[in-house]
Structure formats: C-alpha cells, structure tokens
Computed example of a mutant assay.
Amino acid sequence: MTGASQVNPCFLPGSTLGLLGGGQLGRMFAFAARRMGYQVHVWEPLENSPAGQVCDKQYSLPYEERDCVKEFARYTDLVTFEFENIPSETLTALAIERPVRPSAEVLRICQNREREKNFLLSQGYPLPAYRIVNSAASLRTAVSELGMPCILKTVDCGYDGKGQVKINEEQNLEAIWAAFHAERGVVEAWVNFYKEISIICARSPNGSLSAYPISENVQTNHILDYSIIPARLDRQIQLEVEMLARDITEALGVVGLLAIEFFLTHDGRLLVNELAPRPHNSGHFTVDACITSQFEQQLRAICNLPLGSTRLLSPVVMVNLLGEAWDKQLPDWNLILSEPIAALHLYGKSPPRPGRKMGHYCILGNTIEESLDKALALKSAIYGGT
C-alpha cells in the first residue's frame, strides 16, 4: 500500500514489512510497526525468536537459503534489518524483488570493520589510527607502528567485545595470531578516552535528517552497562557530534537509522569508533523518554513518512539487564515496577546467560542526578549488591 511518487513511494499503514533478524531490536521495531497498523514478517533462523514472538509470520531458515528470498519478498512490500550479521548477498537478492532500506551496500560497509574504517578515512572523518593485518608478521609491524597497548579485532561479526584481543607489552604476538582464527584483522591504537558517547541519526529517502539527543555510555566488560541522556557535554562538543552524525549519515547514503559511536578524548577530540545502520542499544531510552522512539523513527524513515520529533521529555538513564541478574533466581521485578519513574522492558529470551541482554529499564527523573542515582541503586538491588 503506497502513496507519493513512484521514485520514492510512501509505504502506508496496512503495508507488510519484511524484517531480517529476530532479536530484541526487531521485537521493539515490530511493536512500533504494529501499533501504527503495519504487518511484520521476520526472517530469523532461530525459532521462537524475540521478534518472531510478536510478528505476524516468521521464516525460520538460514539467511543463505536463496529459495527463501522470493518467498519472503512475495508477501512483503519493503525490507529492512535489525542487525549486521546478515549476508549482504541476501539483501542484494531481495533488492531485486523489493525495496531494501538501508541498502545492501550500507550493510556491506558497516558489517566489516575494514570497509567501515576505510570509508570513514576516505571521507576525512576522525577515527583512531589503525592497521589491517593478515599474518603474524603484519601484526608485529602494526603493533610496532601503533604502540602498546592496542586492540586486535576481527573484521567481521564483532559486537559486545566479541572477537577482540587487547595486546600488552608482555604478550607473544605469534601466539595471539595463531589463536585469532581469522584471515584478516584490524589493529586499533589504544584510546585513553574521557567518555564514550553515541548518537542516532535518521534519514528518509528524500534526504530529510533528524538526530536524537546524545547518549553518554558506560561499558562494563565491553558490554553497554548504562546510558545517561542527555550526555553531560559542553555545548560545542554537542554541536560537533551532531554535525558529524548528519554528515556521515548523508555520505553513507543511509535510508533508515545510523548509530554512530564516538570516543571523546581528554583533550576534547572526537574519534568515530563504530557505525551501526539500525536501532541501537544506547537508543532504547527513546521508547520512554522521547516523543518518537528510535523504532518508530526507523519505520517512518524507511517508509518515507515524515520523520517524528526527537524531543527529549525528561532526563533519563537506561540500564541493561544481563543474564547475570538471573544468577540464583528470577529477579524481583517489583523493585522496578514499584518505582513510579521506572519503565521495565523484557525481551522474551531464554535461557539467561552471562553477558546476554535480557531486557532493560529506564529511569525518568527531574534531573540527570536523580535519574542516575535511582538507576544505579536499582541495579545494585537487582544484581544482589554486585
């Protein structure tokens, strides 16, 4: 069901959206889509996925199953995705049948650290120094040029600290490469940052852009622990982040969402860390604290509808709930549910495992300080004082 011009048609409520990926991001996208009158079909190899639980139909086949492409496309009007670990060839094949947003080329760049960093470097954006390595010898050269400590990362399929090795003075580089089990890697210079921040930018087919408030992120064991919004930054830094986000989104040609993670150094420099062409963990606060959530904004952008307001309604802190909270028993959700300024979100995942994102909660206070104090007190209570 479309409107507007055939060049950039609008996909109106009543359309069926195809979603690749069945995790929590897809689940929350499906909530937003169904609330606005869309149907959602998800392609996710694992049965009973978080998104599949709430979608109209799930295709439980490998993404490489080319016979599924035409079947999936036949019953959908428009296709999008909720994470990067999808073969770009599958998106390219789908794009022959249906519009795919963001494009397969955007996915191809952002799902591979080498291509992503080369893109950013070619466009002149600031990022940490890096080298591409493909052997123990090239790793030794890279470490010599970048210094130690530094970080060796896989070029593909890395998130939440997976596929990363910190290299220190005393380590054996030949042994590190032998245990790396990848043909290529990226070695990044160590950044002694002041803060990690992120911003989510939306772009529609007609080039309209809109950015969310900046999130200040705190990580524990390479996994996002909690986010503080608005980020506590000087106004000049805020303006620079927003300008870079809009420029990168435009240069990449994204239609949909682009999350950009930055390091802010102690001397005030911004360095691009990673790109994600989809909703982002650090943007979960938007569901409770913004007029338009990131998931509704993704829907609006890919469907060529007017972008919604990103205005922040309240200072907010978002805290991830990891599998560790289930260590001994089911967490006492009354701790959160009895708090008037809290909102709880659970993802329908099973079983809980250490490091697995099972849900999150948001605290919406009158001030950042109130939100942060309450969020951390609840976190301590939920995890048993850890």
Results as ranks from 00 to 15, higher is better:
Leu312Arg: 08
Pro351Gly: 08
Ser282Leu: 04
Leu378Arg: 01
Ala343Ser: 15
Ser338His: 15
Glu324Leu: 04
Ile382Ser: 04
Ala325Cys: 12
Cys303Thr: 07
Ser314Gly: 06
Glu339Gly: 07
Glu339Asp: 12
Met318Ile: 03
Ile341Val: 15
Met358Asp: 11
Asp373Trp: 05
Leu364Cys: 12
Leu335Val: 11
Gln329Ser: 15
Leu372Ile: 04
Ala301Thr: 03
Pro340Ile: 07
Pro354Arg: 15
Cys362Pro: 02
Ser338Asp: 13
Cys303Phe: 07
Ile363Ala: 08
Ser293Asp: 02
Arg353Lys: 15
Glu369Leu: 06
Leu313Lys: 13
Asn281Asp: 13
Val319Ser: 09
Tyr347Leu: 11
Asn334Gly: 11
Met358Ala: 08
Arg311Thr: 14
Ala289Glu: 02
Gln298Asn: 09
Ser293Phe: 01
Arg356Leu: 08
Asn304Leu: 07
Thr310Ala: 12
Pro351Lys: 11
Leu305Pro: 00
Gln294Cys: 05
Gly359Arg: 11
Met318Tyr: 11
Ser380Gln: 14
Ser282Ile: 02
Asp373Leu: 12
Gln298Gly: 01
Lys328Phe: 15
Lys374Val: 14
Asn334Pro: 10
Thr310Tyr: 05
Ala301Met: 08
Pro352Asn: 07
Leu321Ala: 06
Leu378Phe: 12
Ile341Thr: 15
Leu299Ser: 01
Leu335Glu: 09
Val287Lys: 02
Cys290Lys: 00
Ser293Val: 08
Arg353Tyr: 05
Asn334Trp: 10
Asp332Phe: 10
Phe295Gly: 00
Ile341Trp: 10
Ser309Pro: 00
Arg311Tyr: 04
Lys374Pro: 02
Asp327Phe: 15
Ile291Arg: 12
Ala377Asn: 15
Trp326Pro: 07
Glu324Met: 04
Asp288Ser: 14
Cys290Thr: 10
Leu376Lys: 10
Ile368His: 13
Leu312Ser: 08
Cys303Asn: 05
Pro331Gly: 03
His280Pro: 01
Val316Lys: 00
His345Tyr: 14
Lys349Pro: 09
Ala342Tyr: 08
Leu376Trp: 13
Leu330Arg: 13
Ile382Asp: 08
Leu313Met: 13
Glu296Met: 06
Ile302His: 11
Pro306Leu: 04
Asp288Ala: 13
Arg300Glu: 04
Pro340Trp: 02
Leu337Trp: 07
Gly308Tyr: 05
Thr310Leu: 03
Trp333Met: 14
Gly348Trp: 00
Pro352Gly: 05
Val287Phe: 13
Leu312Asp: 10
Leu330Asp: 14
Arg311Ile: 10
Cys290Asn: 00
Gly348Asn: 06
Asn334Arg: 14
